[in-house]
Amino acid sequence: MAEAMLIARGLHAYYGRAHILADVALEVGAGEVVVLIGRNGAGKSTTMKCLIGLVRPAAGEIEFAGYRTERLAPHAIARLGLGYVPEERRIFTDLTVAENLEVGRRPPRQGLEPWTPERLFRLFPNLGEMRGRPGGRMSGGEQQMLTIARTLMGNPACILLDEPSEGLAPVIIEQMAATIRDLKAHGVAVLLAEQNLHFAGLVADRAYVIEKGGIRYSGSMAELAADEAVRAAYLSV
């Protein structure tokens, strides 16, 4: 594993009285693709929201790019270079493709080639052909690409991708896998929350298995694929 850039230790989170996260710990190395895999309600989305600051953990530490972030507001964490692509995509449907990208724009980050709309349109040629189109008039797959592109405009060093394959056609999921491999090639680290083990297998280097708000297993993707017992116990496949 490369040097860790995103580290969480002992995270606890509650919604009202429900204990959603209990002692979650994980690390993502620079340029690494890590998957957080678990069923619905296991705590994947809450973990992601804690990392970006949309949910404040009740206890625990989060470190990103050398800064302690568990008490920071979402915009401050994003400015440190952590990108967030939410599960429901959350495109600004009234804004055009170009305007959606503008919302995500942040100053260039040292040591990284800055993302511009032109550069993103090379990565997502579809988007380039519809830059004046409102986000609301795009298909689910196109919206998913736009939300990733929008996040990249912030020149993140690491991206949180929450269930990007949900609700997409198999053929689009395969494109999504290719995109994630592209990002990795550009040196962007990715933490992926997923239920689809097939998809995770196409892109991830390492995996954490989360169940009932706690990390139950961690290992390389190859080890997880070989470990029938873990998959049967936590992933019900």
Partner: peptide, 24 residues
Amino acid sequence: RFGVLVRAATQDRDMVAALGVNQA
């Protein structure tokens, strides 16, 4: 840019914050 951010926040202010905009 202020206007684009205002229109974006009109739709989804949490998402605007997660993209690095100080919504306060």
